[in-house]
Design a binder for these strands. Structure first.
Lengths: 304, 304
DNA sequence: GATAATATGAAGGAGAACTGAATCTTTGGA
DNA sequence: TCCAAAGATTCAGTTCTCCTTCATATTATC
């Protein structure tokens, strides 16, 4: 009888591409993964893998087995969720991936609430930017991911992931407080006014970067991006100190007392924040509880 | 992650009722099964079993997990069959359960054919009477069962088993050769004539026994069952030597030169012979090959 | 009430699985 | 073109899981 553990390895290999990545993800040595895959292949009686350069690729039989393994893994996960549902308390460990701003704005209260309501629930949290986090959650690295999506930038869709909207986060133009920078900053009161000011933006590749550039071009100018950092807290500091302007989502200001001038943008654009989990684990009580707590805290933020 | 091997044990426990029976079926010691089930229960985090007298019974959570396990086991078996299908030759081992008469009549030629056509296929055969064999095949003790069914005695139906008719086997009245017994035997030439003769029949519980008694009663008498044995070869000997009469299926005479007087019964009743396999394994090439060979040999018998 | 059947626990041994070091191959740059 | 980095695999050794045996407790049966 084929072992689930080995099928898992094959599936992970198909999802991650290299033995090394699989080993890394599952806290094994590459050697262990290689040996177990070799064993699986012997049990299967059919070649599943073939060398392709320095990595491996799946044979047709391998692909077919991966597809079956995916079904089986999902079924197993559903069975486990079902087991947890027959437990009177919410128990177990949930691994959450979340991006910086949402972590700072929502998780402190969410975690306290969960600890109070479900003392047996263990939540593990890792800060990760959405692009990689979605794939990682699909590949069973996390159970729940809190991710964002900018208008016109649908985040990659993974079949097998269940998405649930959490909240909208309005984006506004953030300017230094009056007198903090030179007068050019003080004179600005709209997006178009920021045409010649220095900008801070996230690096290329981030959805927010692309969206911000588009917004500037719609307003008729090419932004002078002088500073790049993925850390929105750094954005805030650069703006507060009169060095730059930026388009910042509202969540950045939660729980902090920034001295910024905020200008609403025409059309009140916003990014949407959502959670995603594997469909097969969506019935797990721990997952349901964490999502529920997030919904409550997200709603509370909007009311403020 | 739950182990398939442990889920299998839980499923077997539900199918067989006692830890001892599961251990017996899987060639483990009862202690091993007990320990693995205890481990499964710990992993599950919920009680799955409860003591009921000196055996165990499933809790509601246990029942639910058994149902999930059944799905998963079927899925795994399908995946394995699918793997074998991508192998150019028919390979692997197939465990067949078959009852005595069919074994003697059909298997010698079937096995020779299979060895010639599929040298890599290993067929294991165990002689078993149909009643237990069907359950055992359902419970994964065998992969294929050749069983019989008497008119008006539908064999127990297992959901999850796939049944395929093989052939019909006409039943006739078997009398000693003329002069072999006393003259009462020689005078008989119909079922009714056998009313006062000594009978040999299978033991109570066998479908054939029940059917034979019914047949006698329909003919207007209660048979004098003086000898009981499940071995139809013994029936033949007792009849040949002028000791008894019996209702015998035609397959008994295949490949042997018996000196019996056979009398056709009105309505030409027959038992039907069929094969059954788990649906999840029905696509396995080894299974397909053996069934095909059986069909061919069964058809050849009918032509004789 | 004796005996057989059932489940389980402790101790020890066999085998599976994992780690670490060494080797080979491929790839991407300097 | 050659070197360094990344990937996969093999081997030897260690760790850990699982299984068997033996002993015990409990329940059912005659």
């Amino acid at each position: 009888m084929l072992e689930m553990k080995r099928l898992r390895l094959l599936w992970e290999l198909s999802a991650r591409g290299t033995v090394a990545a699989v080993a890394e993800a599952l806290n094994y040595s590459p050697s262990a993964v290689s040996q177990q895959l070799a064993l699986l292949e012997r049990e299967a009686g059919v070649p599943l893998l073939r060398k392709a350069g320095r990595t491996l690729e799946l044979t047709a039989a391998g692909e077919a087995l991966v597809a079956d393994a995916e079904q089986l893994l999902a079924g197993l996960e559903r069975a486990e969720a079902s087991l947890h549902r027959s437990h009177p308390e919410v128990t177990g460990t949930l691994r959450v991936s979340i991006f910086q701003t949402a972590l700072l704005a929502m998780m402190p209260r969410t975690l306290r609430r969960l600890r109070a309501e479900h003392p047996l629930l263990r939540v593990e949290m890792v800060q990760h930017e959405p692009e990689t986090a979605l794939h990682e959650t699909w590949a069973r690295g996390f159970d729940l991911v809190v991710a964002e999506q900018y208008p016109g930038h649908a985040a990659a869709h993974f079949t097998g992931l269940d998405r649930e909207p959490l909240t909208g986060d309005p984006i506004s133009l953030a300017l230094p407080p009056l007198g903090a920078g030179d007068t050019a900053f003080d004179d600005a009161s709209s997006l178009a006014d920021a045409a010649s000011l220095p900008w801070v933006m996230e690096p290329h590749g981030a959805a927010s970067r692309h969206w911000a550039e588009q917004a500037c071009r719609s307003a008729g100018f090419e932004p002078d991006v002088r500073y790049e950092t993925a850390d929105l807290q750094a954005h805030v500091r650069l703006i507060e100190t009169g060095n730059a302007v930026a388009l910042l989502p509202g969540l950045v200001h939660i729980g902090a007392s920034h001295r910024l001038r905020l200008v609403e943008l025409p059309g009140r654009p916003h990014r949407s924040i959502f959670t995603a989990a594997r469909i097969s684990s969506a019935g797990h009580p721990a997952l349901v509880a964490v999502r529920r707590a997030l919904q409550i805290e997200a709603a509370a933020l909007v009311r403020e």
